[in-house]
Design a protein around this nucleic acid. Structure first.
Length: 913
DNA sequence: AGGAGCAAT
């Protein structure tokens, strides 16, 4: 009789709290046996293929593989002919294998020392030993049959044919379709990939065209760094080259690409940065925007710019947008709108030449912009498109059918039809994208012949059974606890459990509870290994999630935030427990406040979470909410651009030439209020001129990898009268990495911390405190030990040094005349006040003054604000303060606070005179 | 006297 972890009096025969889940429907239960069989068959098939690749007979169990290999080896040594290859070949292969293994081991070590684990102080990076090209080629050859099984390979012909005719391809590729790894390899063979001479519109509006060499490289953007790096690594393997040669990647602080690179993976932010230096993206023949459904600010902006380029200054640039959800329909429309605007514009120009009246008014900004092809979108054009859509719908736009993988069609949330009907599945084969598009055209300009096409590639995913609770759950952490034990007792191994929660605190609480209960489990029941996963967790501990449990007969239970929803795949998971909530950032433009709130997830998010159970085998997903609660959920997550401060986005838009940000046709507009607030903020920072156009200062700020306010501070620090560039860089770097100062729990440790931190207690405030901290850290011979002693995150400090290095590189170019070439030895009161005056240039809106009752009130708006307890100025009273951020928790707090004089605030003020 | 997610340049 098992020892019951729960004492809730519910039942004494079963551990399961019967009120959590309903049993699956009968039909599902019957289907389970068949699926189990199919699963077995699939597994055996895979194993047979793997064994064949290893030169072993099929159906050899895993545990015997090593034995057989050793046996073969012995046979070879004994001069007996081995079963599959000659003795000589065998030895050669063996030697090659050993060499390969040794290289892999060495490489791993080096990567570990360069990447996840920082080098020890004084450590010397060892040279990377690279395998021979022939070895890489051989490896690539071995991978080829596996690649050919990916669903996307059936569509290679259609995709390539479509892009030969059209410039924009919007593709729905589900998880597991292989789109991210294969698309680059498909397109690289195309003729249009060649570097070539083309004429492009000159930027100065004189209407003359210039000639330039463009193309040769394909860019693939990703929302996350890890994704970009891992994809590049994988594709380099498949192509059979060294990472950084033909295949490479480029992310912040890490660039493994060269002149040779033809397939380049980058983060969307990195491509934006490249666009500021090379607006026409001359290096690239094609740009692929991957994971567009995630709708990060970066992808949204990239898509906006690409749309302008492909119908304007860079006609012939190929654009592929890939998304895993029905977002494709919206994106295709987004590109079509611009196409129609371009068509209308050409027509208008044509008409004007014929002496007719101007039909379409383009972007009140004047003719110069028009020649650049930057069209804003007049309402009449969009309406025109809408009419066309209506017609298509009326005819019943063709749906994709006849596809054996098509599971989309039986989903309940009925999806809008594709924009272009000709995107049928595999049945079409290659060269088939002509379809009805010519009839769709309303122009005689053949360059724009149906330039948008949509496409669908199904993924490979095992079925996932989804369960809902019959009744609403009051406490989802408690419900998760019950569900985990229910699963653990009922479901056979293997089959790990992945639990989605909202934050670190919840995860730690649940971990403790599970571990407590697990101790009282019956000895016959398998053990439980609880593994937390959230971004603040040190990478070494994060890695444990990906490794199998050390002890046998153990089930892993992974407690994760959103991080496991998209960017990482945890192996071994067959059960997902979904609490249905997520913490999201919300921005309130009126008060300029960003806050995090626990909100219900979207349907697509719920689907994505469920899908995590079916990556390796059929799985199950347990939702800790009722089916009725699922129905009103939003279809998709609200795009990030609607939820954050848009000042830096506006700055990027303007720096890229899109001056009228209010009229810009966003994929989703942040709204007038948020835009105006962003504009106002930029105005205060001095990035805009009187008419709202960007000025030189603004352009400078846009190129810095910093939020606008910090960029302004950095530029101010380079001015001769303030002259504190080095100091400002140290502080800015400290402010732009998170969590430098650790907060230990427990009274004893806290006392230790306060004692150790005393030496940084500066009466000037947190900014100067950070500066002295950075300086102190640098002067230490034993940095890591010092950091531990002072409760400073060593890892964060390493990041800080990266940021600082980058900022120094940037500032070398635009401030050659900065008088101080070396940092000052000590922080004198004069230097401190100069530094704080710099920060006022960027944070004038974040100032408060002391009022009579001893509290602080903001200079703008006269709102009450208190100094956060984490500040060195906590509890102190000074004339006025400047602060890095405003947070609202139990009340309004200022964090990152320094003391300033009211007189300084007046000096730089736009309203103070 | 307070603890906030993920990501990016």
């Amino acid at each position: 009789m098992p020892d019951f972890p729960f004492d809730d009096g519910l039942t004494n025969t079963k551990l399961i709290p019967a009120n959590v889940f309903t049993p699956p429907p009968k039909s599902q239960q019957q289907g389970r046996r068949q699926r189990k069989k199919a699963e077995w068959e699939e597994k055996n098939r895979l194993r047979a293929a793997q064994r064949a690749a290893e030169g072993l007979p099929p159906h050899v169990p895993d545990r015997e593989v090593e034995f057989l290999k050793k046996k073969r080896q012995r046979e070879t040594q004994r001069h007996q002919s081995p079963p599959t290859m000659s003795q000589r070949e065998g030895k050669k292969a063996e030697a090659l294998h050993h060499e390969e293994q040794a290289n892999v081991k060495k490489k791993r070590k080096i990567e570990a020392s360069n990447g996840e684990f920082p080098l020890l102080d004084g450590g010397v990076p060892r040279p990377v030993i690279q395998p021979h090209r022939e070895q890489l080629k051989a490896q690539a050859l071995r991978l080829k049959p596996l690649r050919a099984k990916l669903p996307i390979w059936e569509h290679q012909g259609s995709i390539r044919a479509a892009l030969r005719e059209k410039d924009v391809l919007v593709m729905l590729g589900e998880t597991g379709s292989g789109k991210s790894t294969q698309i680059g390899q498909f397109l690289i063979k195309e003729k249009w990939m060649d570097r070539r001479r083309v004429s492009i519109a000159s930027g100065n509006g004189d209407g003359k065209d210039k000639e330039a060499m463009v193309g040769g490289c394909i860019a693939i953007t990703q929302p996350r760094r890890v994704a970009a790096i891992n994809l590049a690594r994988r594709v380099a393997q498949e192509v059979g080259c060294h990472l950084g040669d033909e295949v490479g990647y480029s992310v912040r602080f890490d660039n493994k690409s060269s002149e040779k690179t033809r397939i380049k993976f980058l983060t969307d932010g990195m491509l934006l940065q490249e666009m500021l230096h090379d607006p026409l993206l001359k290096r690239y023949s094609a740009v692929v925007v991957d994971e567009a459904h995630e709708r990060t600010v970066g992808t949204d902006l990239v898509m906006g710019f690409l749309r302008g380029l492909v119908y304007g200054e860079r006609k012939g640039l190929k654009v592929v947008v890939m998304s895993a959800t029905m977002e494709v329909d919206k994106i295709a429309l987004f590109f079509e709108r611009e196409r129609d605007a371009a068509l209308a514009f050409i027509k208008a120009k044509e008409d004007r030449r014929r002496g007719k009246k101007n039909v379409v008014e383009v972007n009140g900004n004047g003719g110069g912009k028009v020649d650049d092809g930057k069209l804003s979108n007049g309402i009449e054009k969009v309406e025109g498109r809408k009419k066309k859509r209506k017609r298509e719908n009326g005819e019943g736009a063709p749906r994709i059918n006849g596809n054996p993988y098509d599971r989309m069609s039986d989903r309940k949330d009925s999806s809008p039809p594709f924009v272009n009907g000709e995107s049928k599945g595999s049945g079409e084969g290659s060269g088939s994208s002509n379809g009805n598009s010519s009839e769709d055209l309303d122009t005689d300009d053949e360059q724009y012949d149906g330039t948008v096409t949509a496409f669908r590639v199904p993924g490979r995913q095992f079925p996932v059974e989804i369960y809902h609770t019959p009744e609403p759950v009051l406490d989802y952490v408690d419900a998760a606890l019950r569900t985990v034990f229910q699963l653990h007792y009922e479901e056979p191994l293997p089959g790990d459990i992945l639990v989605f929660l909202t934050g670190q605190e919840e995860i730690e609480a649940l971990q403790k509870q599970i571990e407590d209960y697990a101790q009282s489990m019956d000895k016959k029941v398998p053990k439980i290994l609880v593994l937390p996963l959230y971004s603040a967790l040190p990478p070494g501990l994060q890695q444990r999630v990906f490794q199998p449990a050390h002890e046998k007969n153990t089930r892993k239970v992974i407690l994760s935030t959103n991080i496991a929803e998209t960017s990482v795949t945890v192996p071994g998971v067959r059960h997902v427990v979904d609490c249905g909530k997520v913490k999201t950032k919300q921005y309130r433009p009126r008060i300029g406040l960003e806050s995090l709130l626990v909100t219900p997830i979207s349907k697509s998010s719920a689907l994505q979470r469920a899908g995590r159970a079916g990556r390796e085998a059929p799985g199950k997903c347990y939702r800790l909410y009722t089916e009725r609660d699922f129905i009103p959920l939003a279809d998709t997550t609200v795009p990030e651009i609607l939820r954050c401060d848009v000042a830096s986005s506006i700055l990027v838009l303007k720096a890229r030439g899109q001056d009228n940000v209010l009229a810009f046709d966003y994929l989703d507009s942040p709204g007038r209020e948020a835009l105006e607030r962003g504009l106002g903020h930029l105005c205060i920072l001095g990035a805009l001129d009187n008419s709202g156009g960007i000025n030189d200062l603004g352009r400078k700020m846009a190129k810095l990898p910093l939020v606008p306010a910090l960029a302004r501070v950095l530029i101010a620090a380079a001015e001769p009268e303030l002259d504190c560039l080095h100091e400002a860089i140290d502080i800015i770097a400290a402010l732009s990495v998170e969590n430098i100062l650790l907060t230990p729990t427990g009274d004893e440790k806290r006392e230790q911390m306060e004692e150790a931190r005393k030496e940084f207690d500066r009466r000037e405030g947190d900014h100067i405190m950070l500066l002295t901290l950075v300086r102190e850290y640098e002067s230490q011979p034993q940095k890591k030990a010092w950091a531990e002693k002072h409760f400073v995150s060593h890892r964060a400090m390493q990041n800080l040094l990266d940021v600082r290095k980058q900022l120094k590189q940037y500032t070398i170019h635009f401030t050659p005349s900065s008088p101080s070439l070396t940092p000052a030895a000590t922080v004198t009161p004069d230097l401190a006040s100069r530094i704080l005056k710099c920060f006022l240039k960027g944070f004038l809106h974040n100032t408060a003054r002391l009022v009579q009752d001893g509290s602080y009130r903001t200079v703008v708006g006269n709102q009450a604000v208190a100094i956060h307890p984490s500040s060195v100025l906590f509890g102190k009273r000074v004339e006025a303060i400047v602060y890095h951020e405003f947070v609202y928790t139990t009340r309004a707090f200022a964090r990152g606070v320094s003391a300033v004089e009211m007189g300084w605030i007046g000096e730089g003020s736009v309203w103070g005179g």
